Computed example of a mutant assay.
Amino acid sequence: MEIRWFRHQFSEIVHHYRNGEDQYGEQLREYQGRTELVKAGLSQGSLDLRILDLRPSDDGQYLCTARNADSYTEATVELEVA
């Protein structure tokens, strides 16, 4: 399974998870050390991303993609930092 969270473009990786491990090599600098995929819900299909130390610049739209050998799906989430 591969899960990716993006910002505005597919090249702007907020968090990447593949084959049971977090992948940090391509992560945007401003998110380094501040994100984690909530793995407790993965078996039920929950792909929640936790962003720590929220900043006003985190406000906006995020895209999540999930892929495995049999399927691909994506969803968009709007984060409002108040």
Score class of each variant (00 low, 15 high):
65 T>K: 02
46 S>A: 10
67 R>D: 03
52 L>N: 14
39 K>P: 07
64 C>Y: 01
45 G>Y: 04
38 V>P: 01
63 L>D: 01
33 G>F: 13
26 E>Y: 09
60 G>V: 08
70 D>P: 00
23 Q>C: 13
53 D>L: 11
13 I>Q: 05
34 R>I: 07
43 S>Y: 03
38 V>A: 10
25 G>Y: 04
40 A>C: 00
54 L>E: 08
49 L>F: 06
22 D>C: 06
66 A>K: 07
41 G>P: 02
45 G>V: 01
30 E>C: 10
69 A>D: 12
72 Y>Q: 12
60 G>H: 07
39 K>A: 13
32 Q>V: 09
73 T>I: 08
31 Y>I: 04
15 H>C: 12
45 G>A: 05
41 G>N: 03
73 T>W: 05
56 P>G: 05
57 S>L: 10
22 D>N: 14
61 Q>R: 14
63 L>R: 12
37 L>I: 15
62 Y>T: 01
30 E>R: 15
27 Q>N: 09
50 R>H: 14
70 D>N: 13
16 H>A: 04
70 D>T: 14
38 V>Y: 06
25 G>D: 13
23 Q>V: 15
30 E>H: 11
34 R>V: 06
52 L>M: 13
48 D>R: 09
55 R>V: 03
42 L>Y: 01
15 H>A: 13
67 R>K: 15
23 Q>H: 08
16 H>V: 00
46 S>Y: 10
74 E>K: 08
74 E>F: 11
60 G>A: 07
71 S>M: 11
48 D>Q: 11
